[in-house]
Amino acid sequence: MNNEELKIKITELLPSAIFDETGEWLNIHVTPTDWLSFAIQLRNDDLLFFDYLFCLTCIDWTKPAEEKPDLTMVYHFSSTKFRHHIVVKSNLNSSQPQIETVSNIWQTANFLEREVYEMFGVNFLNHPDLRLLILPDGWEGKNPMRKNFEDPINMIKL
């Protein structure tokens, strides 16, 4: 499906979705509350069939612009059957960042979400195994990929 067809199809599934075509692929903004039910439809719908989650990450916007959201979750999907792509984004609040996990829909999300959890402090609800993955056991303090992180030991500023 091309972007226009995807737009029509996704509006049917989720009327509140906001589209953005500035990037290479179709961007869809969803709220964290809509995310889980929408994700199940993305995976299981016969015409969408987004079975390949190839990139999952988070962006911290806190520093440069005040009008932007605090954190944005970014999910890149493609379909191995139809070869179409979408990017789903969801804005989170930095005081209590939380979103439903999709690790039971796409298994790869298990590790990727654990990485985002330790690096950005996003809490993934109902995640089967939300522990530190890369950071050492017993890591205390802030999340290193946040813009306001300051390393207390290596105070090198570029």
């Binding site: 190839f54 990139c55 440069p64 790869t108 298990n110 590790f111 990727l112």
Partner: peptide, 14 residues
Amino acid sequence: YRIKFRSPGFSNLS
């Protein structure tokens, strides 16, 4: 502003 490397080994290891 933000850069992410989607590395193949990370997903393969999982």
